[in-house]
Structures are given as structure tokens and as C-alpha cells.
Design a binder for these strands. Structure first.
Ligand SMILES: [Zn+2]
Ligand SMILES: [Zn+2]
Ligand SMILES: [Zn+2]
Ligand SMILES: [Zn+2]
Lengths: 133, 133
DNA sequence: CAATTGAGCGTAATGTTATTACGTATTCAT
DNA sequence: ATGAATACGTAATAACATTACGCTCAATTG
């Protein structure tokens, strides 16, 4: 039994909506797309998103107040630090992990006795494709 | 004439409110604190915040939807990349810049032909003081 | 087996954050 | 003076997120 197969109906619907999307979606956009599946209230979406993010299947983009399906090969669930590059033009999001960035931030935390819980790295800009256009 | 002296009345009021605060404030909290100074509407705050952030005097914390006065010795206005360590318990925010982190992220952008516009780095956790408590 | 517990669900109401729209005032350079 | 740029005031609305209440179902456990 994989993690994904353990998802409830609502969780699967939200997950599939995000995987089918071209880019990040807001909770309310997800809600709208699931009206026909019986979704009626924001909480149905937020509850599913909470679970999905805790499983590492979905990421929240803080600078966008939106959510994306995990597109990385990485394993989440650890304290693994992921960065996101978000294209302001086409909406594409790329996930990447950089060991050195991770190490430097951990090092800062260590030096400053800061107990890091969650780290957000988001780069806003224009992706390669949009840069040419 | 310094930058700060060029601020308008509204901008100065918002700036001073943030400097007097112990931690990040939401726009609406700022609004509440400036009622006695004649503030009546969110837009008065948001307009001042826009200006202050563009001057580098104030930073927006994306993961908090809140704002802090700049506490760094750095010069903003360049593309300088600042990271924030935010204590979830006491609200203290520390700014720091790390050249290597900056370089690694720029390097990723270069390799991927991504034209970075603005980068957010926010570490949520517990500060040294709160860690002991 | 009955009781308890925990996760999830549905709905309504409310709270919080941010923007759009419209009109006015002030400043500064032409 | 005229036009452009910047700022301001107010009202309304949009967008994002949570609280509260009660219910269902399945797993645990005494
Ligand atoms: Zn991922
Ligand atoms: Zn793009
Ligand atoms: Zn600063
Ligand atoms: Zn603290």
C-alpha cells in the first residue's frame, strides 16, 4: 500500500486537481474545480491540503498563497530543504534542492542557536522559456 | 536630505509604527495602531508599505503576511538577498545575508536560464532565547 | 462486545488580508 | 499655465483562511 492509495476521496480529488494543473492553484480555485465533485466549502479543500502537505505530496508557496503538487524526485518528510523557482509569466514552478544552500542555512542556525522548524525559499522571476519570448 | 526625511506623513507613521514594534505587524494591525493619527482605511497602510518596501526600509515576510522594519546594516535596493529567521514563539526576526547562499541560488538561476526577480528566504523556528526557555 | 478514541467529513459563520475603483490634491518640470 | 507623477481619502469588494458545531466511521482496547 503506497501513501497515495491511503488517501481519502477528498484528498485524492484535491491531489489530482493539483497534478492536472499547469501551475500553482489557490485553495479557492481548487474548490471551484471540485464543485461538480460535491465540494461546497473552503474547509474541505484546506483539510485535504493540510494532509497532503504533511505527506509531502503538495507544497505551499508562501509568496503566492497557493499550492502545487510535488514535482521533485526527492523524498520529503525529512527536513529536506526545497527551493522553488516560480515563473511570474507562465506560472511554471521548478523544485530544486541545493545541499550547499541547505548546509549554509543550517550552519547559520547552529551558530545562532536557532532551532529551525521550516524553511521557505522561493525565487520569483521568469523561466527560460518566457525569457526568450 | 536622507531617504527617510523624504517620507510623507503617512509613510513616516507606518515606518515608525514598525520600528516601535517588537516584531512583525500585519497591515491591519498597523492600521489599528494609527487610528488616532487619522488612518481610516487599509489602503492608506498598503500604499505606505509599498513605498517603504521599495525603499528597502521595510520587509514583507511572506510566510507571515506581515511586515517588519529593516533591522540590517546592509544596503537594500540592490538585488541583495536577505534571509529572515523568524521565531514562532516570541516573534523576533533576524535578518542576515549569506554570500554563498546568494551565489548558489544565482548559480542555479544561471544554469537554468531563470531570470530571478525577487527571492524569499524565511526560516521559521525558535530563537536562541526561546530555545532555552 | 461496548466504550473510547482518532481521523475525517459537511455546513455555516466569521475572521483576516489585499485590491479595485473613483475622485481629489500637491508637486515639479516644461 | 499645462501636463505628468506621486500621493491621498473613501467605499466597496475580492481573495484567503479559520472557528465552531455536530456527525460518521473504523480501529483500539478493556
Ligand atoms: Zn516536492
Ligand atoms: Zn515562464
Ligand atoms: Zn533589511
Ligand atoms: Zn524567540
Amino acid at each position: 500500500m503506497t501513501e497515495a492509495s491511503a488517501l481519502t476521496r477528498n484528498q485524492s480529488l484535491v491531489h489530482n486537481t493539483l497534478r492536472a494543473a499547469e501551475g500553482p492553484l489557490s485553495a479557492y480555485t481548487i474548490l471551484d474545480r471540485l464543485r461538480d465533485d460535491g465540494f461546497r466549502a473552503p474547509l474541505q479543500v484546506y483539510r485535504a491540503l493540510d494532509k497532503l502537505t504533511s505527506l509531502g505530496l503538495v507544497h505551499r508557496l508562501e509568496s503566492l498563497n497557493a499550492f502545487v503538487a510535488c514535482a521533485g524526485e526527492h523524498r520529503h518528510g525529512e527536513n529536506e530543504l526545497i527551493a522553488f523557482a516560480i515563473c511570474e509569466r507562465c506560472g511554471q514552478v521548478e523544485e530544486f534542492a541545493d545541499a550547499i544552500v541547505c548546509e549554509r542555512l543550517e550552519s547559520w542556525a547552529g551558530d545562532n542557536a536557532f532551532d529551525a522548524d521550516k524553511t521557505t525559499i522561493e525565487i520569483r522571476g521568469k523561466c527560460a522559456v518566457c525569457n526568450m519570448a
